[in-house]
Nucleic acid binder design. Sequence first.
DNA 1: ATCTGTCCCTGGACGC
DNA 2: TGCGTCCAGGGACAGA
Length: 292
Amino acid sequence: MPELPEVEVTRRRIAPLLVGREISKVRTTRASYFFLTPPAALRRGLVGQRIVALRRQGKYLLAELQAGARLMLHLGMSGQLFTDSARSVRLLSASARSALPPERQARFEADRHTHLRLEFADGGESVLFRDVRKFGKVRLLAPGESDPRLDKLGVDALSIRGEDLYAAARGRRAAVKNLILQQSVIAGVGNIYADEGLFLAGIRPTRAARRLTRPDCRRLVEGLQRVLKRSIETGGSSISDFVSPDGGDGGYQDERRVYARAGQPCRVCAGPIRKTVVGQRGTHYCPRCQKR
DNA sequence: ATCTGTCCCTGGACGC
DNA sequence: TGCGTCCAGGGACAGA
């Protein structure tokens, strides 16, 4: 699931392929709630536009266009942003793959889940957005226009300070894990890195947010930033769907300490990692290393 | 204001 | 082999 590191890795690797190029053709699938801007309006608004920058805000990507409009993208749960030449088995479902001869099994062919395809005036590589579960979003923002989703975002997870988290936790009875998953509090943290950051900080995910001390908040922010930065360095986590724009897998899934490791030995104390549910999300922790 | 539960979607895992 | 059932989860939303 794309969280801050996966979105940032995507941004860094695909920016050189977008910035400075003029969109010549836009192909979409039919309208669905994936399209916050209806497909036809999206096509009209993008053709002929040149992309001048690609930024990240929380888990959102914003492609800035020359005329001041912005293309807002969210990868949701299963979103994949990549180029024509990307090769990855993750770009095909297992059933679709098994129907193909071996030499074509890693080759991408646009399918019904490929909702957006941008072609460019220079005739070079196209950029595609595929999203099986359609939890992703795409919206074209007119010059000066914003989106409530962006307006609500809190401090970016890479720049938040312990003191900010401490302030946000005042009076909150909810579990600390719920607090750090709230994009209005910390923008960019999702389920994997929430669990991993809490582990590094030695904090039990179920602990009431308001019970955190200042030092707790400081350690939690340090833990979160450490896992986020390390994940960016290793190319993100490719646990189910994530691929980088060239089709390559990330490397962070091999460094996970708790996420999706229920029953396996803790890398610190060797005791079994436990799985529970917090706020309807699968939650993994080490009962011995995360006592408080 | 905060908190909790429900819903959107699809494919993969699992049981029989 | 094939079918049915359950599960994963980001975030919007409704209702308490």
